[in-house]
């Protein structure tokens, strides 16, 4: 157990109903200092609404939000000082240049002027900093949004679908940037996405939301364990072999040709084979069936594919 002081984001039974329908339903999020929290779910699952609730942009129907272990109802401005965010789509003033955009925000955050050059360099917009933002590509606007979020040296960075509109090289850049932040600056990050593959390589923890409810929240390694291979045995009489495996403690399934056991490591696979042979079953084949993280994700979110 970590101490309470390390809790950066904590929600309790956070609920938001819009015209009677719970778009966010009893969500409990827990993010600790230094986490890169991948907040996943199909489009329309409630990710952006949850993020708006975290920032106090909209008020919950019930439940609480604590940032830095303080209730945002009473300490919203204090905690927002430590938060940088990019919600839904980047906010920008099209008639201003990138530098002017950042300057308009910098005045309100009271950070040194050099910080503008710093964040422009981080998102690689230095070269285009003097151009009006309305002429920017979506990817550049996205990068400006990330620069704005970074401007106040936040301890918590909330990025809602930050790779939207970016090309593969841009996605890779943002990914590298995000991975480097907690290491170099002790920043905690919440990053939302509808694609598991996008956060899989950087997240330390994942929360999966579907139809407004959290369906999974744990470390990414725990999720990987869930997805590791299942072993399929093709045997001569699966129906009668099935109770044998069950009685020996295996989570088994069967059909008319084969038996499948879940979460089998080398030792338990070997024991299962020995057990079957000992009871005179003919083992024709032993195969590994790898469930990808993506299919596990789809299974958890009710198979709703988002394109």
């Amino acid at each position: 157990m970590t101490t309470i002081a390390d809790s950066i984001v904590q929600t309790e039974a956070l609920t938001k109903s819009i015209s009677g329908k719970a778009v966010v339903n009893e969500v409990n999020i827990k993010i600790e200092r230094g986490d890169i929290y991948g907040f996943l779910g199909p489009n329309g699952a409630g990710k952006t609404t949850t993020i708006r609730l975290l920032l106090g942009l909209t008020k919950p129907t019930s439940g609480t939000v604590r940032l830095f272990d303080r209730d945002i109802r009473n300490h919203r401005l204090d905690v927002l000082r430590k938060v940088g965010s990019l919600v839904e789509y980047p906010s920008y003033y099209g008639h201003l240049t990138a530098v002017e955009n950042l300057e308009a925000v910098r005045r309100l955050l009271d950070v040194p002027k050099e910080r503008i050059d710093d964040v422009l360099a981080i998102v690689r917009l230095t070269k285009d900093a003097g151009r009006q933002v309305k002429g920017y590509s979506l990817g550049m606007k996205q990068r400006l949004g990330i620069a704005t979020a970074l401007l106040g040296n936040p301890e918590l960075l909330i990025l809602d679908e930050p790779t939207n509109g970016l090309d593969p090289a841009g996605i890779q850049e943002i990914r590298e940037l995000i991975i480097s932040l907690p290491r170099t600056k002790g920043v905690t990050i919440l990053i939302s996405s509808h694609l598991l593959s996008e956060v899989e390589q950087m997240a330390t923890r994942v929360g999966i939301i579907a139809k407004g409810s959290m369906v999974y929240q744990n470390s990414i390694s725990h999720l990987r364990e869930q997805a590791i291979s299942r072993i399929r045995f093709t045997v001569n009489d699966p129906a009668s072999a099935y109770p044998l495996l069950r009685s020996s403690g295996y989570e088994a399934e069967w059909d008319d040709r084969s038996l499948t056991i879940g979460r089998a490591d080398n030792a338990s696979t070997a024991e299962a084979v020995a057990l079957l042979v000992k009871h005179h079953y003919d083992v024709y084949r032993v195969e590994e069936q790898t469930a990808s993280l993506e299919s596990l994700f789809l299974e958890m979110t009710g198979g709703e594919r988002s394109l």
Partner: peptide
């Protein structure tokens, strides 16, 4: 106008400003 157009309200309201 520019607050409505580019998501400025959202930006302003998520900054530490009353």
């Amino acid at each position: 106008r520019y607050e409505h157009a580019g998501g400025g309200w959202k930006l302003l309201f998520s900054l530490p400003v009353p």
